[in-house]
Amino acid sequence: MTGLQLANLDDFLARRWEDVVELALQHLAAVAISLALATAIGVLIGLLVWDRPVPRSVSLTAAGIAITIPSLALLALLSPVLGLGWAPTIVSLVFYSLLPIVRNTVVGLREVPGHLVESARGMGMTPAAVLLRIQLPLAWPVIVTGIRVAAQLTVGIAAIAAYVAGPGLGVYIFRGLSSLGSVNALNFALTGTLCVVLLALLIDGAFVLITRYSTPRGLRA
């Protein structure tokens, strides 16, 4: 039985590859948009709290707790407010991305050696200039690592978004799961799953390049 259905996978893909590419691109778009938003918000939160012990532990703890909320539950909670489709998808992905990004921003900024900050202040840089021109560039490799972790996390979670009629490859996975026993059930689920894994690998590969080229030359190993 399995043999028969896998033999059909070729045929299945041949008939639907345009559809698959479309879903994969949606999936990628959802992840990319969420990461961009989460990076902007997360780095900003990190910049605001890294040097203040109480806000820092509050935000890291909050983000830590947030990430334990099951994604299905979060989507179910969001959809009455935000409806279906892209909105709850993006919001939930941003939500899950924040922890690694905020945490790595805080860690990265804290790891900048104190004498470099003192040196910059001693030359008359304003606190904002010290933050933007010294601390942030030096913390950047650590922050990018946080974004990369967030990317891996959200590629997987984005598949669940199909539950609220969201975009992406989850559509195939859910279609397969909801039609178990039908001819193409396994093809749908398998195609969706494999494409998610493939996408995750591609994105991770992209991050190797992003990390390399966005790291200031003097800091590269």
């Binding site: 050696p113 470099l116 003192e118 040196s119 840089m125 030096l138 030359r217 800091l219």
Partner: peptide, 21 residues
């Protein structure tokens, strides 16, 4: 203080050269 420091040379033991520049 920032204006002041621009007119005072400052050298510390760890040197503090910015590694990304």
């Amino acid at each position: 203080p920032n204006e002041l420091r621009r007119h005072i040379g400052y050298v510390i033991q760890q040197i503090g050269l910015f590694p990304h520049m």
